[in-house]
Amino acid sequence: MQRRVHPTPEELGLASCHVCGLISKRLESDVGLLCPRCLSRLHRRKPYSIESCWALTIAALILYIPANLLPIMETGSLLSYRRDTIMSGIVHLWHTGAWGIAAIVFIASIVVPLFKLLALALLLVSVQRQSTWWPMQRMRLYRLVELVGRWSMLDIYVVTFLAALVQISSLATVRVGNGAIAFGAVVVLTMFAAMKFDPRLIWDPLRNENLP
């Protein structure tokens, strides 16, 4: 199916504002292009989109390792002591019979971050190679990355909440482990990475291909 990818504002000598959405004639000033309605600086594409997105994705990938290896929660009582990583916490939850919740935590804490990292890498590589391959599917992938990213915070909230609540003298205490710092950083970095990616770059190679 042939999609309509022309024209873009730039092809007609116009510019679109990323803040207020106004389309205006390109009026150069000494500080660059400015939007006549809101005076924001106008960019054709998000500046340094690919470079910053790669940097944030790689940083998140590196932190993904300690996030999964370090304990995220330490549970102590008179009789027992447990240190849980994200995965061992899920396995423990599964063995106590809370299968539904175990599945939710598994998806939010393991599947979603890994999916985000792989999807961002795929999008970046395809955009850098000027790929015209399946633009709509890549677009849907990007929307999914934006939609699901926040749900990875789930485990951070659970350990925070439990660590505050379960402080009953020596009978039961919960502490947050260092894994939570790494894991929180992964979530924040992948969210920034997704914001930095400019989905219009997916469509630009199609425009160069069938220029009139």
């Binding site: 939850l93 106590t96 809370a98 919740i101 939710i104 935590v105 926040r150 749900w151 915070m153 789930l154 485990d155 951070i156 909230y157 659970v158 925070t160 909440f161 439990l162 609540l165 379960v166 039961a172 969210m191 914001m195």
Partner: peptide
Amino acid sequence: KPWGMIEVFMLGILVSLVKLKSDV
């Protein structure tokens, strides 16, 4: 806008409930 996560926190409370309910 992307940094407000009340709905995720709400799910976090529910997960905590399930984790606690057998012990306390």
